[in-house]
């Protein structure tokens, strides 16, 4: 229903990747779109192609109708991008603001090094989800793979399902919330008490992401900050 409505909207501008190249698509989104007054773009026939809607900086809704490849919505600013399918590696890499939503699953490194904005994966995200995130929020409806939130510096990763091995290894100041099972925590990641402010913030974030989950069911994982400073007692280990 949603797709029919969106396609029927008079202002929706269609860009068909069976007719134009990825470069032409991105050049339109970078140069012509901000001047066009368009608020809604439909990208058709993505067929697993890489680099779609990368570097967009416009207040616009973008729907990608099908499975897409690597680096979708990378470096996004302002735009609300929805992939109606699954994506390959590094969706929303280095996202600055706006929203990138994936209706299906995401492969490795979803939301990697994101500075701001919101990344929503409605299905599962694979390994290294939120690696080195720097302030964005990532909400995953399913589970995440191994070494997710590795060296995550700021922002929040919310996992409604389970987390794979080595969650939050070498974590800095990002906070992780997991509802399901955690296979194992990485070095320096620890479970911390879920406070009232966590519950309030998590509730807001889940609502924003469109998930009906009880924030009280989540565990909070933060950094033990033991790796922040050199410890001479451990010198022999290096």
């Amino acid at each position: 229903m949603e797709s029919v409505k969106a396609l029927a909207e008079p202002t929706a501008h269609q860009l068909d990747l069976s007719k134009i190249s990825v470069r032409e698509l991105n050049q339109f989104l970078h140069h012509e779109l901000p001047k066009s007054g368009l608020h809604h773009v439909e990208i058709l026939h993505p067929n697993g192609m890489h680099n779609l809607a990368v570097g967009v900086d416009a207040d616009v809704e973008i729907n990608i109708r099908g499975h897409a490849g690597y680096f979708i919505g990378g470096m996004n600013k302002q735009a609300r991008i929805t992939v109606h399918g699954s994506v390959g590696w590094s969706v929303a890499e280095n996202i600055m603001s706006g929203t990138v939503r994936v209706k299906g699953n995401a492969s490795e490194c979803a939301g990697a090094s994101g500075h701001g904005g919101l990344v929503v994966i409605e299905g599962n995200a694979s390994s290294r989800c939120g690696i080195s995130m720097k302030g964005c929020d990532i909400v995953v409806g399913g589970s995440v793979g191994h070494v997710s939130a590795f060296m995550a510096q700021a922002g929040r990763l919310v996992v409604c399902g389970d987390a794979g091995p080595g969650l939050g290894d070498s974590l800095y100041e990002a906070v992780l919330y997991v509802r399901g099972k955690i296979h194992s925590l990485g070095a320096d990641a620890q479970e911390e008490p879920l406070q009232a402010e966590d519950i309030a913030a998590l509730g807001e974030l889940l609502q924003q992401a469109g998930f009906d989950a009880n924030p009280r069911e989540f565990k909070r994982i933060g950094s033990a900050r033991r790796l922040y400073h050199w410890n001479s007692e451990h010198q022999g280990e290096y």
Partner: peptide, 13 residues
């Protein structure tokens, strides 16, 4: 290695 090389297969959707 990548989904894009499977996109043409019948019934892949």
């Amino acid at each position: 290695s990548e989904f894009r090389s499977l996109a043409h297969l019948p019934g892949v959707e």
